[in-house]
Amino acid sequence: MSVEHVNYLQPKTLQELQKGLKSLTEKSALLAGGTDLMVSIREKKPQIDTYLSLCNINEMKSITEIDGWIRIGAMVTHTEAALNNKIKTFFSALSMACDHVGSPQIRNKGTIGGNIMNANPAGDVLPCIMLFNGEFEIFNSEGSLRRISVNEFLSESGKTTLNKNELLMAIWLPIKPDKKSCFVKLGSRTEVTIAQISFCLSWKRINDEYLDIEAYIGAIDNKPLKIDEINEILGNRPFETESLDALSTFLSNKIRDIRINRKRESKLKIYEHEKLYKERAVKGVVYDAISFMKY
């Protein structure tokens, strides 16, 4: 008996990619940057029959502006996304999120697509994509491309709906030049930290009025949640203590409800005060996020 043989495929063209996708089984792994996959392989030690490495597919590595949209290839790294001028200008929440994923080394290798496909509830990228009403470009083993909305991409449980022979090629974000955005993450330390709560916000500012405020909160449930009520709660006075506290209380209650209804116990939280932490600490996230609207 010896260590089982593994296939390693690293296609260069879409044709080769298609062929590779066709050959994948339930035991196969898509290799984007590798920063999540390598950890998972080490922890779970799954039997992998084929690796399909995406690092040579040029169509997945570019950031381009097309017809009022930005197309971000799934293999764009966090560093590339964080530094890209178009993303910084039109989608600063995404740029901010990418600038704080893991450490610099992780950001240099980890990809937007990989982060999304990993579908970790504490993932920093997905809430931003949802905030911007992004769409997902999917490639399959028949060679066809389709674009789907977030709702079609994500299941109720927060996992992706793609099957083993499909692949996320790119993310499309519609440009809305008059909308600004920001991203805030609460972790256990400032840099290189997993989100306890993530929060992304977009707004339109006309003179001193703040309109069309949208927000998503992440890492509190199995997928990011839209805060529909935000405009109503913040009203016309988003920076006043009353508004901020009202929003904090609203979100705190939401987090508490999720906690109470949760069926699965959190693996790492053993003390009661740890379980209550998010609903207590969300106030800090709210204050920090809303303060960005001043700029």
Partner: peptide, 20 residues
């Protein structure tokens, strides 16, 4: 940490194929 294409990366999270 090693440098790949001028960027610092973790060699523990990289496979040899990605050097191509």
């Amino acid at each position: 940490t090693v440098i790949l294409n001028n960027k610092a990366i973790h060699s523990c999270m990289t496979v040899v194929g990605q050097l191509e």
